[in-house]
Simulated scan of single mutants.
Amino acid sequence: MSEPADGKTQEKRRRILEAARFLVLRNGLRGTTMEAIAREAGIAKPTLYVQFADKDAIFVGIADTIMDDLLAAYDSGMAGSGDISERVGAALAGQYAVLARTLAGSPHAGELMSEHKRVGARFREKDLRAEVEIAAELGAAGVAEAAALTKVICAAAYGIALKIADEAQMVAGIKLMCRRMIEAAVKR
């Protein structure tokens, strides 16, 4: 018995995105062609264009799947156990660990990180959601300048993620930074 038409469409879309993700990580965005994506996905080029209008649309599709993983890691950290510094540290470290694993070994990681403007609205939406949630948690914990501290913590976590290539060290660094900054602010 065959899948319904929408199941086949979703399966094709998944195969295309997996193939594109593999090629983009290996060859970079500029070095990946629609023809190569179709070949890697095992479909005809016209079939690819039925699913995605162009390479930008495919990049957005890849980013959307990564975004779902980032949000799941962030939410898991915030819902975890521990005090506010531990939960914020786990949330931010978790999302950057997902990103590190996604880009691991790619000689084009820098290029891909700089392409965030193509999907900037979705990433900005995620960042704003995190900032509002973290600021509310910090405010509830008695931090006087919760919104300002949140911006500093989020910026520092991003910087740590960019500068420390080793995932375990990066996660530890983000958690340490959150613990030190948040505990100091809560004790005031």
Rank of each mutant, 00 (worst) to 15 (best):
G110N: 04
A20D: 03
I62P: 00
S2E: 14
G28H: 08
Q95W: 14
D75T: 12
F22H: 10
R15K: 14
A165P: 03
E40S: 02
G77L: 14
A141V: 07
A157W: 00
A168I: 01
A5Q: 05
A5R: 13
A165R: 10
E115L: 12
A19H: 08
A72V: 14
M78Y: 10
T65H: 08
F22W: 04
A72F: 01
Y96Q: 12
A63E: 07
K55M: 05
A93N: 11
A90D: 09
A20Y: 03
F22K: 11
A140Q: 13
D64S: 13
E137F: 04
V152G: 03
I182L: 02
G82E: 10
G77V: 14
A144I: 02
M170R: 09
I43N: 01
M181R: 07
S2Q: 10
V60P: 01
V186A: 05
S2L: 15
I62Y: 09
E115M: 15
L23K: 08
E3W: 15
A57C: 10
A156K: 06
I62R: 02
L23R: 03
P4D: 05
D68S: 15
G110V: 07
L138G: 05
A141G: 05
A184P: 01
A184D: 13
R124M: 15
P107M: 10
R87Q: 11
L25A: 09
A155G: 11
G89E: 08
L128P: 12
I164P: 02
L162Y: 01
P107T: 05
R129D: 05
L17S: 02
T150M: 14
A144P: 06
G105V: 07
I174K: 01
T65Q: 15
H108P: 01
A104E: 12
Q10K: 13
R87N: 06
D64E: 13
I66Y: 04
E11V: 09
D75A: 12
M181D: 06
E111W: 07
V50H: 13
A140H: 07
G31C: 04
A97I: 04
E86I: 09
Y74M: 07
H116G: 08
G120T: 12
R21D: 12
L99S: 06
M113P: 04
G139P: 08
A90M: 03
A148S: 14
G82S: 15
A185G: 04
G159F: 02
R14T: 14
L71V: 13
L176G: 06
D68E: 15
L128Q: 10
